[in-house]
Design a protein around this nucleic acid. Structure first.
Lengths: 219, 219
DNA sequence: CTTATTATTTAGTTTCATCTAAATATTTGT
DNA sequence: ACAAATATTTAGATGAAACTAAATAATAAG
């Protein structure tokens, strides 16, 4: 399994909503910042290896083996991110690029020991769940902040966009995972929100709200 | 800089006794388990990139940049080995393969933070010195056990062969870095040695002695 | 001082992952 | 339902990094 093959599986997994939907050539090309023709080539190869199903012009979806492989790479990525933040004090906006490299290190033993060393974390620094050794992925009832109703309260549990610029924005505005948020008002015109977060009120754009996941708390 | 290029630089550095001697095509091919013709190709490329000097039929030697790059890779390799042993409890015979992969992760920040996290170690688990950030390599007065005279005392400071089989042999026979060793007798016929190690006597073959480094202690 | 041996290089091929340009299939809009 | 737009695939090329087989240079041996 090459780095490139692993990256394709990861991208297809993400695009396919955990393997349910079939994924188009162009979507993969976009996600991976490559050309559709390159995707066709790779997809043929992965298909021959039994990692995904492919019929011309009909998109692809991962096989069981393909899904397990993708989850194994995602597991590595997320565990390494935890390591970088917890043990090496990187901030959450600096770890993605490095984890993109570390996720390809081949050693199950290594990742298991690292996992133990970190105390078997369940989530990465961006709130994404870490797949188990067996390839089970915890699915939570998190919702985008844009989908919450006025007066609903939630706890910020994850980000959708993990780009450095978005994460830096959150840091600068003192919004962190675990924070309690209540929707005070929604602006019809631009979809922006008035929220109460940790005793202070603030106004956030729709763009921001649509990249923050919350878990609604009753009451 | 590709993984392969880094591996070539590392191999040439090791073969060239820290850049002093010029290294032959065949020696590199042997070291890297590849064909001489492949070496010629790569050496031409590295030469064009200014990492080594190459004249047909006359071997190569690293430039300043080439040496610095090699040392940077070696630094990464050794720091990762310390991490694997100290933090993840790998044994010293398991870390080489994994470090061969980790040494190619591109991030100076990562290796500096890891270095700090480990308390700025000076030696890797096999007793090899870790180059500084600036590319300085501590050279010690260690000598092979085969070069020590009868009645000389030394401290075991490093191994020459880092293969799993040799290291496992040492573990099994309770020989570890830091142990005090005295040469009791040398057998003319096969070069084997009678040694005193930590209150017990044992007999070791020339093959073993020629892969153990000691630092002679006076008295 | 030739010849034989060994070392090294050249030339041409392969595999991998990408690309561009062109061809073909599918989908959409009227 | 047909043309236009979009998506996808094919064909052919490129750059790494390896290989094999053949040619050439350097070295060693008689």
């Amino acid at each position: 399994m090459t780095h490139s093959e692993e990256n394709y599986l990861k991208a297809i997994f993400h695009l396919g909503k955990m393997g349910a939907e079939s994924v188009s050539t162009n979507a993969i090309a976009d996600e991976m910042d490559t050309k559709p023709s390159s995707v066709t080539d790779m997809v043929k190869k992965l298909s021959e290896k039994g990692l995904l199903h492919y019929k011309k012009y009909q998109g692809v979806h991962l096989t069981g083996t393909g899904t397990r492989t993708a989850l194994s790479v995602i597991r590595k990525h997320r565990i390494w991110e935890v390591f970088l933040v917890e043990k090496l004090s990187f901030s959450w906006d600096e770890v993605h690029e490095i984890a993109e490299q570390l996720e390809h290190i081949k050693s199950e033993e290594l990742i298991d020991r690292l996992d133990a060393h970190l105390g078997f974390p369940k989530y990465d620094p961006h709130g994404d769940p870490i797949p188990s050794r067996e390839g089970k992925l915890k699915l939570s009832d998190k919702r985008l902040l844009t989908e919450a109703a006025i007066n609903e309260k939630g706890i910020c549990v994850a980000v959708k966009d993990s780009s450095a610029s978005f994460l830096k924005f959150l840091d600068k505005n003192k919004i962190a995972l675990g924070d309690h948020i209540m929707i005070l008002d929604k602006e019809e015109f631009d979809g922006s929100l008035e929220i109460q977060i940790k005793q202070r009120k603030m106004h956030i754009s729709n763009e921001i709200a649509s990249n923050l996941y919350v878990k609604i708390v009753e009451g």
